[in-house]
Every structure is written in structure tokens, then in C-alpha cells.
Design a protein around this nucleic acid. Sequence first.
RNA 1: GGAGAGUUGGCCGAGUGGUCGAAGGCGCACGCCUGGAAAGUGUGUUUCCGCCAAAAGUGGAACGAGGGUUCGAAUCCCUCACUCUCCGCCA
Length: 423
Amino acid sequence: MLTLKQIQENRQEVIERLKVKGFDASLIIDQIVELDSHRRITQVDVDALQAEMNSISKSIGLMLKDGKKSEAGAAREKTVTIKENIKKLTIVLESAEKELQNLVIQLPNLPHSSVPVGFSAADNVIVREGGVIPKLANPLPHWELAKKYDLIDFELGVKLTGAGFPVYKGKGAKLQRALINFFLEEAVTAGYSEVMPPLMVNEDSGFGTGQLPDKEGQMYHITQDNLYMIPTAEVPVTNIYRDVILNESRLPVRNCAYSACFRREAGSYGKDVRGLNRLHQFDKVEIVQIANPSNSYEILESMVLHVQSLVEKLEMPWRILRLCGGDMSFTSALTYDFEVFSTAQERWLEVSSVSNFESFQANRLKLRFKNENEKKAQLAHTLNGSALALPRIVAALLENNQFEGGIRIPKILVPFCGFDVIE
RNA sequence: GGAGAGUUGGCCGAGUGGUCGAAGGCGCACGCCUGGAAAGUGUGUUUCCGCCAAAAGUGGAACGAGGGUUCGAAUCCCUCACUCUCCGCCA
């Protein structure tokens, strides 16, 4: 959520920047500016009436103490109309605040100046790439490999739950655990401290990171207890710092977490969802940082390098995209996507998204920092990235490393798996 | 799930209708003291929304959350959430 100050002070710039995301903000911003001034004027009035009330109340107390009963009664009568006016104006004030809030949360985050203009994935910019795309004679897609070597049972998942909830078996299951451990170890070594968060969150947490109210339909909602299944560990981990004022010396805060992730993926269909390409439940290791605004973009780069080191260690053909305005999420200021190449499907699969949210989430979270010398706390920057999401990594790993009669496990994973080939 | 007791500032803890944003203590910051430190001592130490060009200053709000009673609520009433204890159930 943008701050009112941001909107007031850089009105034109905000409108221009949001155009990069294909968002026309001019009307909303006009309304916000007008409503905010209305709100402030009303508040001045309410405060003045309140002050009068307070002073009368105080004097009544003193009068009663002195035994001046009739004077106190007279004063009491004066309060009747003041009280009515306060009531009326408070209603006006509260509805203005509510309306203002409703408008402000409709505005997406401002894209960073380096974000390319564009409307679809085709307009994303390749930043750099690496690895080698293997040349295979007749590669099988991972869903066939999974069946052939009995690694993943999609039909069984349908029986138990529904489409998009696969059952991993044998070496397939072991590979999941190996990847999770590998990713966590790498993150911890890189200085992230591990947390294991709840897989369900409350409404406040959903709002804090921006899933609610915008993406309500993307999360599984347990209505009986009004809880949401997390779509990513970003939600619980970032919300650890909701309503927190950190000491500046603690920044950057770095956390990593493994979690299962749950997404309804309403409206998806076709080859995009085949096999592991899009699931309702999947595993992911997430990295999160809370940063000082002065160096949050350097931190973003370091997170990108961390993810890059993972795909390199896994010997995958990879590339990094800088997302264009139209392809970026509502909450992000700058996002890099990582893709790995899937040989059998002959296409790039997104395996990670690394973003700087600047103060957009922090403003919702009331996540601030200050040092001893400062009176006023300021909003921190939040960043996160997948490091990494498993399913498409598994898809690429199976497809790219297949050979006649087996699948080779990348060297770095062998100690985690306990085997070096699937056959 | 049943019964009871709680929820106050960074922490502990007092406060049952009036001048309480809140005693006292701990912690922390700065100063004095000291050769240096400890002890001692003094001052300060929540956050949000406004007014003001800004600072100074100043108005308002907040004692788990929301509502109510009252001229006035941390204090009384209602609803909800959470915590603890006992019982039940359970990996």
C-alpha cells in the first residue's frame, strides 16, 4: 500500500509510474487527495469539540468536589449538543477514513525506474543466462518419466484429493526431501536463519503481505475458522514482522523457510497445467529479507545471485528475466523471474520470482525501523524470493538428465538423495 | 469440549469512575561522580492522527479487540479473541 505522503507529494510521478504497470490512477488519486483533505478538516473539528468536552468534564469533576452541585448540572447540560456534534462528525470522519483506505489499497505498487514498459510475458527482458541445454534424441516429458520410474502418481492424488495434488513415491519422494534440504542448507550457509512457519494464516496476515483482499480467490479458505492456507511461506514469514519496530542495527533481517504451498489456481487449464507444471499443493523454500531502504536494491541483487547459484549447482540451463510492468505483481516494485529449460516440453519454466516490495508491504504490515537518535520510525523495505520452488525444478531435472534406461541425479544432490541415478 | 482465573508501557507490576499516558521497579539512553569501572545520583525513555513553513509548541486518540453506560471509563456492562490452571480428548 502506498503511503498518503507518497501520493500527495508526488502526485504526477505516481500517475506516470503506474502507467508502466498499465494502471490508470489519475481518477483514484484525485479522489484520494480530495478525501484526505476532507478528512483532515473534519479531524480538526472533531478534535476541537473533544477538547471542549474534556475541559467541561474536568470542570464538572472539580465542581462536584467543591460541592457546587447546581453549577455542575448547568455544565452537564452544555455537553448535550457538543456530544451530538461529536457523534455526527465522528461518523463523517470514520467513513472518510474507511473510504480513503478502500481507495489507497486499490493502487498497485510503483514499479522501479528500471522496470521495462510492456503488457505481457513477451515484453520481459532477459538479463542473463547460463548453463547448457542438453541435446536429447527423443526426450520424454516428466509426467511420462514419473510414471515409467514410479516416482510420482498423479492419478492417486486425484483419488485422494483432486487434480494438482500428486503423490510422490519412492525415489520421487526422496528427491523432494533432498531438494528441500539442499535448498535450506544453501540458504542457511548464505546467512538466512531458518524458520518453520504455520501453513495457515489469519486474515490480518493475508492483508499484511497483500494477498487480501486482492487475491482472495487464489487462497484456500477454511471458513469455519476463517483461516487461509498459505500460498507461499512469504506470508507467515514476512508477517512475523507485522506491527514491529526494529532497531536499525538489526537490518537486514534474513529468514528462510521451507513450506508446502497451496494455490487454487482458478482458471488455469491446458498444457500449462500438465504434470508438475502447475499444482495446487507444492513445496518451496523461500528467502525473505527486511532491509533498510538505503540498500534494498543491493540486497535484491544478492538474492538474485543466491538463486542463480542454486540453478548453477543443479547444472540447469537457466535464464533471468526482468519483468515488465504489465507482468509484475500488484505488490512488487521490481521482480526478477528465474526460468529453467525443460527439454522435453521445449520451453522455459518459471522456478523462482525474486522481488523488492520496497515499503509497499511494510506500510500494510506497519513494519518499521529506527535508530536511537531518531524520533520517528520509518517504513522498512521487504524482499523475498523462491529459492526454490520444487515442482518445475523436478520436471526439468527429470527431463534434462534422462538417458536410455535412467535419470542421472546432479552431483550436488547425491549426498542428499543417497543415490546417483534413478532406474 | 466443560469449569475457573487473567490480558496495563521494552519487561515486571500498581491502579475499581474524575486532574491517569498511567505509581513504583527493572532495563535502556545521556549527564554527574570515578584514574577507569561498579555502586551512587540526576534527567530522559510508547505509538498514531492533526494544527504549525519548520522547529518549538500544541489539540486529539490508544490500558487485548469491538460495542455500550456516563458530563467523565484502565476502572462499570455486553460481545469476541487470546493466555494460564483443572477436567475431558489426543500425535
